[in-house]
């Protein structure tokens, strides 16, 4: 089980007043979502978790090792990053080479690489277009490819920045299934998102950021059971809650339509 621990972490940009301060945050659950309004500090926290940007004070420990001390190769094996905009993370001539490039950073055996590439392309359903240039792909395909490049390395921790953006419905389902699968295989999956419906349906734990501070840590149902807090941090409850409270006057917590159905078919 991987544990990520942030101790007294702070970061501020030289050019703005914004400051991120996290006294204590421990992430041990397999599926963690980080949420918050625009400008709450999500992207800053994300960049710190990638290990590519260091906090000015405090440290980030991964299984008790300081993230800043990892060698580049160890960092790759530890943290896989899926950025929001896939078009700026693809730079090889074909889909196949794109995945192979990532693998070649830590693996030198060509046969192993070839086998692994074929395997992950099948997982994300891109086998048929493996010879295409990544630039000719549609947005969802690019995103799936960028996920494949990380899957190939098989890191302990997966970081996703807004994974649902620019995906269509079938690819959203595919990515969600993949993330759940990774979590079941004891990887830690962390996602930044502003999609409350997806969050409510998918994650077991959420950390809420507002004004650069953690305002809530816990299960989605616990967060959405506190409407004042949800409002104060600038979030909205899942859509099903607004529908049910609007139409039926029922203001209890429901995470998905299926959740409502389950709770009401029992009696």
């Amino acid at each position: 089980m991987t544990a990520i621990q942030l101790n007294d972490v702070s970061y501020h940009y030289p050019t703005s007043d914004f400051k991120l301060t996290i006294d204590q945050l421990t992430m041990t659950a397999n599926l963690v979502a980080i949420v918050g309004q625009n400008g709450a500090g999500k992207s800053t926290l994300f960049k710190l978790l990638t290990g590519l940007m260091q906090p000015q004070t405090g440290n980030i420990l991964i299984n008790h090792h300081d993230l800043a001390d990892l060698s580049p190769a160890d960092r790759l094996k530890t943290i896989g990053i899926v950025f929001q905009d896939p078009s700026s993370q693809l730079f090889n001539a074909t889909v196949e080479k794109e995945v192979a490039w990532s693998l070649s950073q830590t693996e030198s055996d060509a046969a192993v690489i070839a086998e692994k590439v074929a395997q992950v392309l099948a997982t994300v359903g891109l086998t048929d277009i493996k010879d295409k240039n990544p630039f000719d792909l549609s947005m969802p395909e690019k995103k799936l490819l960028s996920i494949a490049t990380v899957l190939a390395v098989d890191p302990q921790i997966y970081l996703f920045d807004e994974p649902m953006i620019s995906l269509d419905w079938p690819s959203q389902q595919l990515v969600t299934r993949l993330m759940q699968q990774l979590a079941r295989e004891k990887h830690q999956v962390i996602a930044i998102t502003h999609d409350m419906d997806w969050l409510a349906a998918t994650f077991s734990k959420i950390a809420v950021l507002s004004d650069g501070e953690i305002k809530f840590e816990g299960a989605p149902a616990a967060l959405f059971g506190q409407p004042e807090l949800v409002h104060a941090v600038g979030l909205l409850p899942p859509r099903i809650m607004s529908i049910v409270s609007d139409v039926l006057g029922d203001s209890r917590v429901y995470l998905t339509p299926a959740d409502y159905v389950a709770k009401h078919q029992t009696h």
Partner: peptide, 15 residues
């Protein structure tokens, strides 16, 4: 066609 449905519809259908 693989198109997602609105939550109202999912709810109404199940109920």
């Amino acid at each position: 066609w693989q198109i997602g449905t609105p939550q109202v519809y999912q709810l109404a259908r199940s109920m």
